[in-house]
Nucleic acid binder design. Structure first.
Length: 264
DNA sequence: ATGGTCGACTCTCGA
C-alpha cells in the first residue's frame, strides 16, 4: 500500500498538476492539505475518474483537507476533539481521519494541516501550540489501539537544522522556534516515527520551497511534510521518497508529495 | 530598464 501526503496550495489551482502526478505515481491513499475551497467546489469527478473514493473537510479560502483512497472508507472522522485545550471547537478545517481495510486488518490514516503560527509570539502562535497539544492527546488515544497508524501532513515544523538550507534565517520563525520543536518532539516521543527518518543513508531532502526569490533553483527549501507512523506501521515500511521533480513543472504547489510504500 | 510569489477574494491577508 502506497500512502502519500501532498499540500496542494489550492486544489482548484492544481487541476492539472495533481491528476498528472496521481496518474504517474498511482498511490493507494493520498492525504491532501490546503484545499482552499468549500466541499461544493471540490472537483470530485476528476478524482473519481482516477479510481479514488474521497473524504472531504473543506473550508472557504483557507485550510481544507481531503483523503483520496482506492480502498473504501470504513470510518471517517473530521476535526480534532478539543480535549479541553484552547478554543471550544476546532473550527478551522485542518484534520481528517479515515480507516481503510488493509490486507491484514484496519489501517488508520489522517490528513493534517498544522497551523503555521506566524507571527510568533502572538495569538496565531498560541493557536498553533494549543493545536499541537490537542494533536498529541489525540495521537496518544489512537496509538492505544495498537493498529497501523499513519499521520500524514504538513506539520509546519522544521524539526532540525538538517531540514533547512540556512537555519539562521529561520531562527525566529514559528516553524523553527525551540518551543515548536519541543512540542513536535513530544508527539514523536509518544511512539511515532517519521517515515523519512527511518530510511538509512539519505541526506535530508526538502518538501517545500517558497515562491519568492528563486527558492527552488537555489534549493532554499525546508522539510516540513511528514508521515508519522505507529510501530505497527513502521515495521511494514518498505521505502520512502519525495517526488520533488513536480516542483519544477507548470503551476506547481509550493510543496511536493512525500510517499511511503508499506507492506500493509 | 524592469521587476523580481502566489492564491483567494476584494484588495489585503495568509503562507
Amino acid at each position: 500500500m502506497e500512502i502519500a501526503s501532498f499540500n496542494v496550495n489550492s486544489i482548484r489551482a492544481r487541476l492539472h498538476a495533481v491528476p498528472r502526478w496521481l496518474s504517474e505515481a498511482k498511490p493507494d491513499i493520498v492525504c491532501l492539505q490546503e484545499l482552499k475551497t468549500v466541499d461544493a467546489n471540490f472537483p470530485i469527478e476528476l478524482f473519481e475518474e482516477l479510481g479514488y473514493n474521497i473524504a472531504l473537510h473543506g473550508q472557504k479560502s483557507y485550510n481544507g483537507v481531503a483523503i483520496l483512497s482506492k480502498l473504501p472508507f470504513e470510518e471517517v472522522n473530521m476535526r480534532l476533539p478539543n480535549y479541553g485545550v484552547g478554543e471550544s471547537e476546532d473550527e478551522q478545517s485542518r484534520y481528517l481521519e479515515v480507516v481503510v481495510a488493509g490486507e491484514n486488518g484496519p489501517v488508520r490514516v489522517a490528513s493534517i494541516y498544522l497551523p503555521n503560527g506566524n507571527p510568533a509570539p502572538g495569538p496565531k502562535y498560541d493557536y498553533k501550540l494549543d493545536w499541537m497539544v490537542r494533536l498529541r492527546t489525540h495521537a496518544e488515544k489512537l496509538l492505544s489501539y495498537e493498529e497501523p497508524l499513519i499521520l500524514c501532513g504538513d506539520y509546519n515544523v522544521i524539526q532540525s537544522a538538517d531540514d533547512v538550507h540556512d537555519a539562521a534565517l529561520w531562527a525566529d520563525d514559528a516553524l523553527f522556534l525551540p518551543q515548536t520543536r519541543a512540542a513536535f518532539r513530544s508527539i514523536l516521543n509518544l511512539g511515532l516515527t517519521s517515515a523519512y527518518d527511518q530510511v538509512d543513508g539519505r541526506s535530508h531532502q526538502y518538501t517545500y520551497w517558497g515562491y519568492q526569490g528563486g527558492a527552488r533553483p537555489k534549493n532554499h527549501g525546508i522539510r516540513i511534510d511528514h508521515l508519522l507512523c505507529s510501530a505497527q506501521a513502521i515495521d511494514h515500511l518498505k521505502s520512502v521518497r519525495i517526488d520533488d521533480h513536480v516542483r519544477d513543472r507548470e503551476k506547481p504547489s509550493d510543496h511536493v508529495p512525500i510517499i511511503g510504500v508499506f507492506d500493509l
